[in-house]
Design a protein around this nucleic acid. Sequence first.
DNA 1: TGTTGGATCCGCT
DNA 2: GCGGATCCAACAG
Length: 263
Amino acid sequence: MPPKKTRAQNGKIQKRPVEEDLDEIEEEVKMESEDQQNKNKKENTSNDKPKSDDQDILKKLGDDDPIPKEFYNCCVVDLAQKLIGTYLVRVLDDGTILKAMIVETEAYKAPLDKACHAYNNKKTEKTKWFWQDGGYLYMYSIYGNNNCMNIVSATKDEPEAVLIRALEPIQGIQVMKKFRGSNPKLKDKDLTNGPGKLTQAINIDKDYNGHALFEKGKLYLVKGLDKSAVQIEASKRINIDYAQEWVDKLWRFTLKGNKFVSK
DNA sequence: TGTTGGATCCGCT
DNA sequence: GCGGATCCAACAG
């Protein structure tokens, strides 16, 4: 059976006047993302350390201090890499603490990125959460009851977000298994190796839209692996066949050699 | 209001 | 690797 045609393949994504206005800066963004990809390649091969200001921010933090808001106020492609190796802390109502390391991310950068839900500045009830400051969550459900978690980057004027695609469970593995269902065959490595699986494992859903990750609460982010221990691989984003030329961006980032990544 | 399709998951082969 | 399940937001009429 031939694959189903997407809306884009059916020609339903067509240029609208507002997009024509964007054409002028499209070339500029293309150059910017090519620069970014070159930078990625360099960073991936030379194991460069992150910018000194980020290092300063992280150095001052205790192991359980939330990473402050300014960490998120950067380009989404930068943030997607900076998040690799950080720890997500989930505090349940009964005080149980779940902890997991981010090992796979994808960057989505509206208004030009055709893979992004906020493409062409499409602001709806679902996507309005893109227009927040960096450090807040955008949650959405897809293919039934699969919730996906995104961390908004930059500022409220720039609709960009990082999709969290996989985590490595660190603490509370049995509780995560319980949230994932009662399948006794479920292996640790299959617990959080997908965007829908990980939100189920830490028990969050669309109610977490707009949640601040930089404040200590039910869900926050803390520093994790030492940056010198983090080697990042860049690849193409997954399952965005409809996104035309944006399919080829190397905006998926994984922790090199980690067995908890989704594919 | 009905139809379409997707940033996924899971079971089966 | 393939295909069905699933359900909700977006969109067309």
